[in-house]
């Protein structure tokens, strides 16, 4: 893997460290905490109480959680070396377009493949718990993605670099300085390749990660479709969603 032009090994190392540090500092739970919580499940009664909530209440609750997680992704982005050197227009475009991708990648940390459950509001939940949302296809896609991503067994360093690479996608529409972002992404991918080599992983592992990108994109689009439909049916509730959520997922 040749180094990008004008880029030293020292710089790749600096990027690796900054991205990993940022990922760890902006992850709500550490891997140890997640391991400890993995068997704290919602009881059947608790699950039923979520299932019998109204769609409005459940959407509101999920929107609040997603908004909270977005704030962490913004902080993650800010600490990736080079991100804040981009013009603010591009920073906002990258975040609006990529924060859901990063959230989905991060979700596989909070997924337990043994019982197909995911951490939600302090306990692990099955996909059925989210029935009231009226988006079974979206919820099932998220769980399926978490399942396939967890099989890749990314280390924290790999996940950090993969998240950064996805966030720094130069093909997002309306970007001003595509070249600058392209160079940054290239460096992050080199850092990811070096990290995989260091850990003795095969080339296939990177291919497996990259092969998930179209699925990430389709889930992001599905979320927007579902949100638009919800907005049509329940405009007043959608208006009370957290302002940051509306800002990021508004048209």
């Amino acid at each position: 893997n040749p180094l990008p032009e004008g880029c030293s090994m020292l710089e790749i190392e600096r990027i690796t460290q900054s991205v990993l540090k940022s990922h760890i500092e902006t992850s709500h739970y550490s891997t140890e905490e997640l391991k400890r919580m993995a068997w704290t499940l919602y009881s059947p009664e608790e699950t039923r109480s979520f299932q019998t909530k109204s769609a409005e209440v459940m959407w509101q609750q999920c929107a609040v959680h997603i908004t909270n997680a977005i704030q962490y992704v913004v902080e993650f982005a800010k600490h990736i070396s080079g991100f804040l050197d981009l013009c603010q227009n591009d920073q906002i475009i990258l975040l609006k377009a990529g924060c859901m991708d990063v959230l989905l990648i991060r979700m596989c940390r909070a997924y337990n493949p043994i019982n197909n459950t995911m951490l939600f509001d302090g306990k692990f939940a099955t996909a059925h718990l989210f029935k009231a949302l009226g988006c079974d296809d979206l919820v099932n896609s998220v769980f399926d993605l978490a399942k396939t991503l967890s099989r890749v067994q990314m280390s924290e360093e790999e996940m950090a670099l993969f998240s950064a690479a996805v966030l720094l996608s130069p093909d997002r529409p309306w970007l001003t300085d595509v070249q600058k972002i392209q160079k940054l992404q290239e460096k992050v991918y080199v850092a990811l390749q070096r990290c995989l080599q260091k850990e003795g992983a095969t080339e296939q592992k990177l291919a497996k990660m990259v092969s998930k990108l179209p699925i990430l994109k389709s889930i992001c689009n599905l979320h927007i479709d579902k949100l638009e439909f919800f907005r049509l049916v329940h405009p007043e509730t959608a208006y009370t969603f957290p302002p940051l959520y509306r800002e990021v997922f508004g048209s």
Partner: peptide
């Protein structure tokens, strides 16, 4: 800028997420 007021604020402030 007005449309993305909160994102602008988050990008400019130096607080950590725990303070948000």
């Amino acid at each position: 800028k007005e449309k993305h007021k909160i994102l602008h604020q988050l990008l400019q402030n130096s607080t950590s997420p725990v303070d948000l």
